[in-house]
Design a protein around this nucleic acid. Structure first.
Length: 709
DNA sequence: CAGTGAGCGAGCTTCCGCTTGACTT
């Protein structure tokens, strides 16, 4: 008796979620009697070391406990044993259902008696959590099957394609349903960039004067046609013909109003895009900071989670958050509160397991908590906060006045845009529009203004732009390739494997990346393309709707695929040996030319006479600036610290010469003193080049290559 | 934000998607 009462006072209902930060919040909401624990993602998965898909037996996967997760799993099982009831509350999406399923198996294997139910919710609010607990249900096996199909397909693709690359290109390479399509996009764009031929064209502006104000109007019609000015001579001819019109006549004035609705709150994809465009952050950096804000920052009163979950594809927000935003707007910007709340539609195939990314407490304004945040936390929090509040404010309105001027049979156009109603723009600081308003004076139709001067300007048509973190994430998301948790890692894998490099934010394929992409796209055109994943998702939906079986879906894919794999393996010629890039250096041991190779630790120089001559050396980046030293500056890595350590640049004559710097040398020489230039970054100037010589003051801004961090 | 030093051509690699930490190499 006494024992029983004691037990009921303890936490006798176990709730399992995926993320520990979420566990903390939910435990607070559920209160007494509940214990909430995190699984930290998948605990059961395919082993890394082998295929582990039984092709002869209906593609059944051979699951194991994920390396390093045994401790967590055992503890969950132990806790479950002590509980009266277990609620599996992993995310309400396909992967979450699979996590719940595997947990249930593991727990009931060790303890058949305990009652295990599945609960789901799409927002972490007291109401939603309590409601979920009041309506426990079962695991949706169709969803679990869909996840299994996804997992098995990715394993079959990745573990079939990668070995082809090992054999034909280079050991250790990788390919997969997602990364190889991302690489293909980048390579195709590069081809467009290369084949684009810029064309010269000119524009002509007239400087007009009314009273004391001067403004410019653009030539939009010449001799009854849209002007196509190809070169300097043509523009001079036009100016010559127009010179006699000392005055231009106002022919038409039009005012058009435009309404701009605020944008929906952030998803992972739009957060990464906006942070890249407005703050210059890589996807990876954005996610690292967002994770910090989500896990919580000490803002005086203890650690507080400042934003909702950062890996989401939804723009939906909870009612609690909606009301909080409206209350905040009513109190601070009463004129900008719309009568009706704004609702935003998530993208078509959103899994919608979480809310949009929003501040957890709208009353904690960025400026109020700035002193507790790092600068990057402050900036990221600011854009999240601004975007969320703005999304519930009134639209902004602009009025554009367009004036047409005639000069003979030519027409010029000038326009000015003014904001009529600021609306949600009132809240924006970091996200505020950066363009300046252009003003033109008041005029009347029929009025004449003086033409003071002509301004011809040379232009070139600009071709397609290379992908950046922002645009590749956008492209992937639009085509339903990858998930919020993988956008940043996809970019990292392409960089880490030297398929792509990043320069001035642009993603440029390397020689290796192009070769791989070419082989994969040519050999597997049905798989390595932009629509394969969308097709796959459609079939996964059918599995979830119990219209087809997961194993038949896999069989239909695998039969032709495996044939093609065998065919390519036996027929494709190896390109090993063509990968080394020639260089200007020659081997100091045997005189043969040196080639640039990609090794385990990055690029290095090797003698082309290998294996007779085994000479290797790092790639020289510059001459050592120390007087009398004949060493070269090369990239080195510190040994201490996690991973491979931090990159720095030192002299090859170390320890005789101890010259060292953290600034990356460039191939350029300083025009003032002749030593080499290095890349530097700081807050005021951004990234720029400066002379390595501390006694030389040469510096100027230029474009540079970024790191992956 | 302070902080700094090999080797590399291989015998064992690789996927996508969920989640956070992280010694002895």
């Amino acid at each position: 008796m006494g024992k029983k009462r004691k037990k009921s006072e303890e936490n006798n209902i176990l709730v399992i979620v995926e993320s520990p930060a979420k566990a903390k919040t939910i435990e607070k909401y559920l209160g007494k009697g509940y214990s909430v624990t995190a699984s930290m993602g998948h605990l059961i998965d395919l082993p890394k070391s082998r295929l582990a898909v039984n092709i002869e037996n209906g593609f059944e996967p051979d699951y194991i406990t994920v390396r390093g997760k045994a401790k967590i799993l055992n503890e969950l099982v132990k806790k479950a044993k002590k509980s009266e009831k277990v609620y599996l509350a992993s995310d309400n999406d396909r992967e979450g259902e699979a996590i719940a399923f595997h947990l249930k198996n593991a727990i009931s294997k060790k303890n058949g008696k305990v009652e295990i139910d599945r609960i789901t919710f799409n927002e972490i609010t007291p109401v939603a959590i309590r409601e979920a607990v009041s309506k426990p249900g079962d695991i949706d096996m169709a969803k679990v099957d869909a996840q299994k199909a996804r997992r098995v397909l990715d394993r079959l693709v990745g573990y079939s394609l990668s070995p082809i690359l090992w054999k034909k290109v280079k050991n250790g390479l990788s390919a997969g349903r997602v990364q190889s399509v991302a690489l293909k996009l980048i390579c195709e764009r590069e081809k467009e960039v290369e084949s684009f031929i810029p064309e010269e064209y000119w524009t002509l502006e007239a400087e007009l004067k009314k009273g004391r104000s001067k403004f410019r109007a653009l030539l939009v019609e010449y001799r009854g046609e849209k002007p196509k000015i190809k070169n300097n001579q043509e523009v001079l001819d036009i100016i010559g013909a127009l010179k006699r019109y000392k005055n231009f006549m106002v022919k038409d004035i039009k005012v058009t109003e435009k309404t701009f609705r605020p944008r929906p709150p952030f998803t992972t994809s739009t957060l990464q895009q906006t942070a890249a465009n407005r703050l210059n952050y890589t996807s990876r950096r954005t996610m690292r900071i967002a994770q910090q804000l989500y896990e919580g920052v000490n803002i005086g009163s203890g650690r507080v989670g400042l934003i909702t979950y950062m890996r989401t594809d939804s723009t939906r927000i909870s009612n609690v958050a909606l009301n909080a935003a409206r209350k905040f707007i009513a109190e601070n910007y009463p004129g900008e509160l719309p009568e009706q709340p704004q609702f935003y539609r998530s993208k078509k195939n959103a899994q919608d397991a979480h809310e949009a990314i929003r501040p957890t407490y709208v009353e904690k304004t960025p400026d109020e908590i700035k002193k507790y945040l790092t600068l990057e936390q402050y900036k990221l929090y600011s854009i999240i906060w601004e975007r969320f509040i703005a999304s519930q404010m009134k639209p902004s309105k602009t009025a554009t006045t367009t004036v047409l001027f005639s000069a003979g049979d030519s027409l010029f156009r000038a326009a000015s845009t003014v904001t009529v109603e600021k609306g949600y723009q009132k809240i924006l600081k970091l996200l505020a529009n950066r363009e300046k308003e252009k003003r033109i004076p008041q005029m009347k139709v029929g009025e004449e203004v003086e033409c003071v001067k002509f301004h011809p300007e040379q232009h070139f048509t600009t071709g397609p732009s290379r992908y950046t973190d922002a645009t590749i994430v956008k492209a992937l998301e639009e085509n339903d390739i990858g998930r919020p948790s993988t956008y940043a890692p996809i970019i990292s894998v392409l960089l880490d494997r030297y398929y792509v490099r990043r320069q001035n934010k642009q993603l440029i394929p390397t020689q290796l990346g192009r070769i791989i992409s070419e082989i994969l796209s040519d050999s597997f055109p049905d798989l390595i393309n932009i629509s394969f994943t969308a097709e796959m998702e459609r079939k996964l939906d059918e599995i979830e709707e119990k219209k087809i079986q997961w194993s038949s879906m896999i069989r239909e894919f695998y039969e032709p695929f495996s044939k093609q794999v065998a065919h390519v393996t036996s027929t494709l010629e190896s390109v090993k040996g063509t990968l080394d890039e020639p260089t200007e250096y020659s081997c100091e041991l045997c005189g043969r030319p040196m080639v640039k190779k990609l090794g385990r630790y990055g690029y290095f120089l090797a003698c082309s006479g290998f294996p007779e001559c085994k000479n290797t050396k790092p790639i020289p980046l510059a001459d050592c600036p120390r007087p009398g030293c004949d060493g070269k500056i090369v990239e080195r890595r510190s040994r201490r610290g996690r991973g491979r350590g931090k990159v720095f640049y030192g002299c090859t004559n170390y320890p005789d010469c101890d010259f060292v710097t953290y600034d990356k040398p460039t191939s350029q020489k300083c025009p003032k003193c002749g030593q080499f230039l290095v890349e530097k970054t700081d807050k005021q100037r951004g990234t720029y080049k400066a002379c390595i010589n501390p006694d030389c003051d040469y510096l100027h801004t230029v474009e540079i290559e970024d790191q992956n961090a």
